[in-house]
Write a protein that binds this DNA or RNA. Sequence first.
DNA 1: TAGATTGTTAATCGATTAACAATC
DNA 2: TAGATTGTTAATCGATTAACAATC
Lengths: 222, 222
Amino acid sequence: MKQVKVSNNVIRRLPRYLRKLDELSENGIDKISSRQLGELLGLTSSQVRQDFNCFGEFGQQGYGYKVSALREQIAAILGMDRGFSAILIGVGNIGRAMMENFCFTDWGVDLAAAFDIKPALIGTDYKGVHIYAMEELERYLDEKHVDIAVLTVPKTAAVSVTEILTAHGIDAIWNFTNVELTEPNSSTIVENVHFSDSLLSLSYYVAERRDEQTAGQAREKQ
Amino acid sequence: MKQVKVSNNVIRRLPRYLRKLDELSENGIDKISSRQLGELLGLTSSQVRQDFNCFGEFGQQGYGYKVSALREQIAAILGMDRGFSAILIGVGNIGRAMMENFCFTDWGVDLAAAFDIKPALIGTDYKGVHIYAMEELERYLDEKHVDIAVLTVPKTAAVSVTEILTAHGIDAIWNFTNVELTEPNSSTIVENVHFSDSLLSLSYYVAERRDEQTAGQAREKQ
DNA sequence: TAGATTGTTAATCGATTAACAATC
DNA sequence: TAGATTGTTAATCGATTAACAATC
């Protein structure tokens, strides 16, 4: 792999390629050109080739890309074959939804444990994952190697839990609390899932369309 | 408002400004400069001013921006004051998590109804929202005005439900199924929440860091 | 008034697209 | 071989940053 310094835009497109390649595999398609793949994802063929060339030569001139090989290359780039381990903190609604519906292993991540403060949950297993008391978190972090913390605690607990995590060497947080954890000075890798940001972007485009519709009607009336 | 054609990058930053301004308000801060706001969000002051200037003149030269006024301007741009209505389809884990934890009204959206196929749920109210049978969806869409459909059905139902929605005039879908709904030909506004994409981006940066650490150790050994 | 900070234009930087030689 | 499609360089486009006059 080349790996100079790949832009975030490229990284964000890789999972989309991966999902589309999986879909193609399921449909029995084993070969694809950059033009075809681009069309499926709304990208130019140039961009597809440029993206792949950040990491090496995956294709075959005059032929295209082998779907399964390309899929494996991208999976490797994304770290899916590294056996990263994760723990989930906060077994509330979102936490449970993730444990129940989100298949971590599909993306190469092993969800090893969960933590909560609710006595009724502590000591039980949920979807094959053991739920520990929050007090055991620090010891767990010291004893086991954890790559990613999935943060699904209530907003109010976000900062204090984050402090514990970083103090015990966690350097990646998947943040579902609506709190901006990306401290400019911290070296922790944070991926924020901000539902509100997502909804508001959608809301913006709906508002824009409504304005266009109104403008269109006004023109018609003239 | 000016409104030429604002880039998606700008739109995606607006909710971040909004959240930060809300936070400043809570802390009793009523005035802020583009430099300060930029620092809080990891942006340059130029970018902050450029972003706002897409929509008009919100500040006061020599003074800065009034937090509350700026907040209201951004809220208006994002359509938060338009009273958009939403319905949620699929009251499973994610659907319930959204109904229970996500405060739609905080972002100016009214969650008016939910739909599911499970008999035990149909006819009941959850968090003040009535759950209808899936068969009633089409009639509901014809009778009421719905701006946004929150799609939290299982993957397998995603496409068929989407067809119903678009056939009955829904033009915005907030998509939580891990299916790419953004059809190149469709005119529906789709906002995809792809958890897997989010996790895989995080995974990439963790892998990158691990490589750096390994490289660092190798250098030390020499 | 002097200092501060915006609004806005110009310069720079980076990302996307186009083009084409290499080659399967 | 001829046709197709990659890998890669060059050209274009757009987004970010810098600069500064306007003005509170």
